[in-house]
Design a protein around this nucleic acid. Structure first.
Length: 496
RNA sequence: GGUCUCGUGGCCGAGUGGCUAGGCAGCGGUCUGCAAAACCGUGUACAGCGGUUCGACUCCGCUCGAGACCUCCA
């Protein structure tokens, strides 16, 4: 491990040295998707952010258990007229069994995440599969005296909890202010206090997903699953809990309160939150007409998209911003990212080629030191709270070195080239998870053979100064998306 | 109204109390039959107003502006 890893802890609002509880083991829990609709851009950001964390921790040699849940129960629609379960509503509209909806969108989520080269977590538990554990934890909280039964539901007593604990310590809220500001809404008569939250809720007739419990037939409260599943799979104290900044309050605040009430101690050591995304400066919302699913990005099939953007372009774009800052999507920004990504990939191919050939004679001052510095800088960037944009800026220095070597401007020894290759594989492939989309495909050999033939014919035409034929070949290829470039060593080509 | 993010050059996006981020675009050059790529060079950037300081884009305060959350859902 190179130096030490620093993580920004939302709880302390400071960067802290990362020291796992039980090295070399470490655990990370991230709030996953609610599977009631197609995966969209808002799903990509946390997934990619914590994929980077997962990958880097593994690279550093930790044995990482990464848990990311699937939320499939008890969600009320925000903008619906009546409070109907999101999954249930979808099921009713589409004449499906609720679990069928859940399975369908879970699969869709996986397809998109795979495309983005987001590694599957070690465990992907579902809320619906942990009803028993949730009931058990609610019982613990009741026994501890921090919850009360009202009707068929169970609520968390925030005020009582706050007497000996700080409810709001993660998001910087003060309970009195929360109470003062909150409005009294209908359907809250059961609560003693407006800021109390449900641990178990009795099911209304429209709720299709329901389970028996000591209190009523119903479903678990909105924050239970994460407390329960993180503790079940990572232990009563674990290292990292992540999620979007929008989850800080109330979700994560409630998780903290529940877990503390049930266990008597805190469970999470480092809280990490990724910032939100905007589209042309606006938040993404169905009402604004800028709600774009990942599939729409990949196909370009959306009115505000000028073209399709590949999964790797999206991934590169997200990684080019630091995870704690907002990131703004626009066609212009994505096109810039696409070019940058391709430049990086091109350099990777050039590097491979340089290693294949016997490199230039090692004369003059070896840039060995420069390569070594680059390696250090790459680690420094990641160690500083996973600073992927700075890492990427260093990788473009690598790109420059490779291109200079390719142009014969700079001499790199075979040792240097091997080091650069190692750097590239480590940081681009392994840690950033950026794969070369243009070399994918099963017909590679055939295409390569055809291209070799075409370029040979073109080369003969050029020798005869038959520019018409030469240009016809190049232009026609360009028309089907293949770019031909003439270099000193002959023509090279790439699929755009 | 409250809490939390944030406001950097044409676009995106790092960072620091005084020293070049980087990518994309633009401009000039090298190379080239042409083109593309690559390489070299190039930009009066840090929302506004005060304050602290020898010195602030970087610290503090205020103003303006953007976003998230503050509610029944995660």
């Amino acid at each position: 491990m190179e130096e030490e890893l620093i993580i920004y802890n939302t709880l302390s609002r400071k960067k802290e040295k990362f020291e796992p509880l039980n090295p070399p083991f470490t655990g990370i829990y991230v709030c996953g998707p609610t599977v009631y609709g197609d995966p969209h851009l808002g799903h990509a950001r946390p997934a990619i952010t914590f994929d980077l964390v997962f990958r880097y921790l593994r690279h550093l040699g930790y044995k990482v258990r990464y848990v990311r849940n699937i939320t499939d129960v008890g969600h009320l629609e925000n903008d619906a007229d009546e409070g109907e379960d999101k999954v249930a509503k979808k099921a009713r509209l589409e004449q499906l069994e609720p679990m069928e909806v859940v399975q369908y969108y879970t699969d869709r989520y996986h397809v998109s995440m795979d495309a983005l080269n987001v590694l599957r977590p070690s465990i992907e538990p579902r809320a619906s599969g942990h009803i028993i554990e949730q009931i058990e934890m609610i019982r613990q909280i009741l026994d501890a005296g921090y919850a009360y039964i009202s009707g068929g539901s169970v609520y968390f007593d925030v005020e009582k909890y706050n007497k000996t604990n700080h409810y709001g310590k993660l998001s910087g809220r003060v309970l009195d202010e929360l109470i003062a500001c909150s409005r009294n809404l209908e359907g809250q008569e059961e609560k003693h206090n407006s800021c109390d939250f449900a641990l178990w809720k009795e099911a209304q007739p429209e709720h299709i997903m329901r389970w028996p419990s000591p209190w009523s037939v119903g479903f678990p409260g909105w924050h239970m699953e994460c407390s329960v599943m993180s503790i079940k799979y990572l232990g009563e104290v674990f290292d990292i809990h992540g999620g979007g900044m929008d989850l800080q309050f109330p979700h994560h605040e409630c998780e903290i309160a529940q877990s503390k009430a049930a266990l008597g101690h805190d469970t999470v050591r480092y809280w990490m939150h990724n910032n939100m995304i905007t589209i042309e400066g606006q938040k993404m919302a169905k009402s604004l007409g800028n709600f774009i699913t990942l599939e729409q990005f990949f196909t370009g099939n959306h009115p505000s998209l000028k073209q399709a953007y590949t999964p790797m372009t999206i991934r590169f774009f997200i990684l080019q911003a630091h995870y704690r800052g907002t990131v703004d999507f626009s066609n212009e920004a994505l096109q810039a990212a696409e070019k940058g990504y391709k430049k990086l990939m091109e350099a990777g191919r050039t590097l491979k080629k340089l290693i294949g050939h016997q490199p230039l004679p090692p004369e003059g001052i070896s840039p060995g030191q420069a390569v070594e510095n680059l390696r250090k800088q790459c680690y420094q960037a990641l160690n500083d709270d996973f600073n992927s944009p700075v890492l990427i800026s260093h990788l473009f220095e690598l790109v420059r070195m490779v291109n200079c070597a390719n142009d014969g401007i700079e001499n790199l020894s075979s040792h240097d080239l091997a080091s650069l290759q190692q750097l590239y594989l480590t940081f681009v492939d392994e840690i950033l998870g950026l794969t070369d989309e243009t070399t994918d495909g099963s017909n590679q050999r055939v295409v390569a053979g055809l291209m070799e033939l075409l370029l040979k014919i073109r080369q003969q035409a050029r020798m005869n100064k038959d520019w018409a034929t030469s240009d016809q070949i190049r232009d026609s290829l360009s028309g089907i998306g293949i770019t031909v470039k003439d270099t000193k060593e002959g023509a090279s080509w790439m699929i755009e």
